[in-house]
Nucleic acid binder design. Structure first.
Length: 261
DNA sequence: ATGGCCTGATCTTCAGGA
C-alpha cells in the first residue's frame, strides 16, 4: 500500500478552508499535518473535513500559532507538546501535536520564528528546538515509522534560500539554528528531501510581497525528518508548488511524501 | 522610489509573519 503523508502551513485555516478542501480532494493525502491554524479548537472546521472522510485533532489557541493533524486512516494517542516544552512570556504555545495515524506516528510542528538574532524569541526558538530533540529521542529509535514534519523556520543550507547574501545576520540561516537540525539527525532522524516540480530548488515558502512567488524568491523551511523505518519506506517526495498559485493561497506550499509499506 | 502582502484582533491600525 501507498500511504501519502503531507505537511502544510496554511496561514489561517479559517481563511484557507476552501483551498484546503480543494487540495484534499485533488492531492488525497492520507495524513496531513497543518500549521498556523490561527483559530481555536471550537472554530476548527472539523465538520467540513469529516465530510471528506478525515478525522482531525487540533491544538489551536486563537490568533497565533495552532497545529493540527488530519487523517483518513484513523487517529489515536494524540498528544499536545511534550514534557519540558518551553513557554514564551509565561505561556505554552500551540506548536506541536503528535498522533498515530494508521501505521505511522507523526508530530506536526510549528517552530518559533525567532524574529531577530539576539531577541528573546530567538533564544526561545533554540530552546524549543533543544526540547524537540529530546522529545524525538524515543520515537526515533522505535520500530514504528515516525516523522516530525512541519514549518521549522530554518533553511537547512545556503542553497535553501533564493539569495543568501540577503540573509546576513538574520534568522533562519544561522549556525545555532542549523545545529538544531543536525541534532535531530544525531537522534537518528534523517531528512526527506522533496523534489521541486519546477526550477531546481524545492522552495516551500515565498513571501506575499514583491512578487516573491512569481520571481521564485523562496525559502525551503518546511521540512520532514523521519526515523529509519519511515525513511526506508519513502518512495517519493515533492513540494506541491501549484497550491501556492492564484488568489487566496497560503504563503507556504504543501510538502508531500509517499510511503510504500 | 530601496517599496510593493496577508491575517485576525486590539478593528481604519497594529503585531507578527520570515
Amino acid at each position: 500500500m501507498v500511504l501519502r503523508v503531507a505537511t502544510w502551513n496554511v496561514n489561517s485555516v479559517t481563511a484557507r478552508v476552501d483551498r484546503l478542501v480543494g487540495w484534499l480532494g485533488t492531492a488525497k493525502p492520507d495524513v496531513l499535518c497543518l500549521q498556523e491554524l490561527k483559530t481555536t479548537d471550537e472554530l476548527f472546521p472539523s465538520d467540513r473535513l469529516a465530510d471528506l472522510g478525515y478525522e482531525a485533532a487540533s491544538w489551536g489557541s486563537g490568533r497565533w500559532n495552532g497545529v493540527a493533524i488530519l487523517s483518513r486512516v484513523g487517529i489515536a494517542d494524540v498528544r499536545r507538546g511534550w514534557d519540558g516544552l518551553p513557554a514564551f512570556d509565561g505561556a505554552l504555545e500551540a506548536r506541536a501535536l503528535t498522533a498515530t495515524c494508521g501505521p505511522v506516528r507523526v508530530t506536526s510542528v510549528y517552530v518559533p520564528n525567532g524574529r531577530e538574532v539576539g531577541h528573546a524569541h530567538y533564544e526561545y526558538k533554540l530552546a524549543w528546538l533543544d526540547s524537540l530533540a529530546q522529545a524525538v529521542a524515543e520515537p526515533a529509535r522505535a520500530e514504528q515509522p515516525y516523522a516530525v514534519l512541519g514549518d521549522f523556520n530554518i533553511a537547512p543550507t545556503d542553497a535553501d534560500v533564493w539569495d543568501v547574501s540577503l540573509f546576513a545576520d538574520s534568522t533562519h540561516v544561522t549556525l545555532p539554528e542549523r545545529a538544531r537540525l543536525t541534532a535531530l539527525e544525531s537522534q537518528g532522524l534523517a531528512e526527506v528531501h522533496p523534489r521541486a516540480l519546477k526550477y531546481d530548488k524545492a522552495f516551500t515558502y515565498w513571501d506575499y510581497r514583491q512578487l516573491g512567488f512569481q520571481k521564485n524568491k523562496g525559502m525551503r523551511i518546511d521540512l520532514v525528518f523521519g526515523n529509519p523505518a519511515f525513511a526506508a519506506a519513502v518512495s517519493d517526495a515533492w513540494v506541491d508548488r501549484e497550491e501556492r498559485k492564484g488568489a487566496g493561497a497560503s504563503d507556504h506550499a504543501p510538502v508531500v511524501v509517499d510511503l510504500t509499506m
